[in-house]
Design a protein around this nucleic acid. Structure first.
Lengths: 367, 367
DNA sequence: CTGAAAGCGCTTACAG
DNA sequence: CTGAAAGCGCTTACAG
């Protein structure tokens, strides 16, 4: 028994990778008859290797179908070349366009993206950050679910993993962010309504902190929601226009909830003649309710929506929208994060400007 | 100098993690005064540890803010708990809904998702697969850009990394897939048109293998495109309906291209009275052109679109659509992949059924 | 119940 | 220009 075992061992060809396992650096090195260090240099394209040696190594690697083990490389080098993206909802068209830009920007720099979804649940967000830190991502891009509960973004690890917030700010000067100026954008929308002659203006506000819909703004809202509501309210005040709480609803972000909320608004004794919808779902819900009540868009009801969904220009009448530079937002977040990865002391935040695209869903109110 | 250096060294407290680096297992073990093996058992919740030891270790880990290094764990255990997803376009609403389902299904099983975008470019796809293999993903979900160029999906590595195709099939029995039956779905759409009395039926077909738009089907198309065209063509033949090449266009997948193509179709001497649009962009382009030509939807032109984009039900008239079970598709792909990761001999493919949602965009043709 | 040791597959000084 | 050796931070047999 012992003898047979020994024979088997000595017969094993040690210059070839076992064919049931992935080839390793040492298999390539043996086949090319060099050391692992030399093989690594030839494959990695750094350090000094003679042309003949390099060719021998590359040939051996090709023959063995060698793939470097990035896990091992990352562990040794201390860089995983991976970025974590923690987002509220990847199926939201705004966020996934941003993610697309992040993937493109990061991959150009050699980084891959781990994407996690939170559904704006702070507990899922904490968990997502923990998992990503454990996977040793080189940096994090987060759409934070809460403006206040941010400890997990501040003290996640030593040495610090750089974090960039996307789309939303939080209550801390310690974390860089890339956002749009939604306060100004909401104000511009209100002014656009007012310029067309509207005096009764309402809001359909999407927020994750509400089941169904309600009249008062929830305590906890993310910065974009607060910015849009405050921007609109401030503009209304400046214009001397009345603010009737009956004209506004805070809704769980779904078309059906928005439709129900808008139906309530339209059924009220003195409904608004203009509605600012804070996202695609709110806009679609408003449109659906308006159809139910036979309220013509751009006639009895004017509407402006945040974010330029692809259908808004084809809808009849075409919808006036606030176009946020979503690709630029994602690219800027990725670029900022890459700089912070290079230079841990690098600090910068950006606020991009949105643009009001006036189309025919806003006209003078019927009198 | 040498003396001071030595002193500095001896003064260093070796029972604590250096405060400029992440705590390691050995730091936790030292603080808890146990071996690394015991610390690992306590933290990992496996093997035998006394309650007292466990508590000491967990306390030490908490004090040091210890995070396991998944890179090291993966290298040792041979499992990265990571799945690679290679998709044509993450900002496409169909694919990102599928990705959402994949993320949810996989994360419930403890897996994270690396997402890469190919824009249907086969070279980018090869590169994506290579990178993911190098990162040692435990499995791959791929939306293949080509039906034929698939070597990179077959012989990518030893031991084999399990692969599941999403949405599209390829020319190989070796790779499992999860798709929808688009042949049947397209046939159902044609029959629905015919039942309403249409005899001139055209197609607006999105395909990445074309710049602008053209009349003939390109040589290289992905399986969904071929299935939809063949399903429609077969149904037309069975119904004895004419097929006029002027009624159909193959388009780069953008609203503007589809609009231009549809404008050409509508300007032809005897335009079709019904159009099957193979995705959201095609549908929006068709609607835009119809508006330009003052062709009423559900009147002079009937339309059915693949995939139930959120706006289709709110549009006037509401659009008839082919609803594909996208969340189910993503979840099924993830579940299948997880099974294949557990059991490398597991083989299975699924074809899910789509559903025609008849709404008011299809009516009898004006005579 | 606990610990010493080997090893996952690389890269990085260091020596020659 | 090349190689021997150490070490990244874990887990897994194995021994006690």
């Amino acid at each position: 028994m012992g003898y047979r075992h020994a024979v088997g061992k000595s017969e094993r060809n040690m210059t070839q990778a076992p064919n049931d396992k992935a080839a390793r650096l040492i298999d390539v090195a043996r086949r090319a008859e060099v050391s692992r260090a030399t093989a690594a240099r030839a494959l990695g394209g750094y350090g000094l290797v003679t042309e003949a040696t390099r060719e021998r190594v590359l040939a051996a690697a090709a023959e063995l179908n060698y793939r470097v083990n990035e896990l091992a490389r990352s562990m040794r080098s201390g860089r995983s070349l991976t970025i974590g993206v923690v987002v509220a909802d990847i199926s939201n068209s705004f966020f996934n366009s941003a993610i697309r830009a992040i993937i493109e920007t990061a991959s150009r720099a050699g980084y891959q993206i781990l994407v996690l979804n939170t559904d704006d649940d702070i507990e899922k967000e904490r968990n997502a950050v923990r998992v990503l830190i454990e996977k040793r991502v080189d940096g994090l891009i987060v759409v934070p679910a809460s403006q206040h509960e941010i400890e997990h973004l501040l003290v996640q690890s030593e040495p610090e993993v750089p974090v960039v917030l996307l789309d939303r700010r939080v209550d801390s000067d310690e974390i860089d962010f890339v956002t749009t100026d939604d306060r100004v954008a909401a104000g511009a929308a209100i002014r656009h309504f007012a310029a067309a002659g509207h005096v009764r203006i309402g809001l359909l506000v999407a927020t994750a902190s509400v089941e169904g819909h309600c009249l008062a703004m929830p305590e906890q809202v993310v910065s974009t929601v607060r910015d849009r509501v405050e921007g609109a309210t401030a503009a209304l005040a400046e214009l001397g226009l009345a603010v009737n709480p009956e004209w506004t609803r805070y809704c769980h972000s779904s078309v059906e909830t928005a439709r129900a909320a808008m139906a309530e608004i339209l059924a009220s004794p003195e409904p608004p003649t203009a509605i600012l919808a804070t996202n695609e779902e709110m806009a679609l819900g408003a449109l659906a309710a308006a159809q139910e009540f036979a309220v013509g868009i751009g006639e009895a009801l004017s509407i402006i929506a945040f974010d330029e969904a692809p259908w808004t220009g084809v809808f009849r009448p075409p919808l006036s929208v606030i176009r946020r530079p979503v690709a630029k937002l994602g690219a800027a977040a990725a670029e900022l994060l890459l700089k912070k990865i290079e230079d841990s002391s690098y600090r910068s935040s950006q606020v991009l400007q949105a643009e009001l695209i006036a189309r025919r869903s806003v006209e003078a109110p019927a009198l």
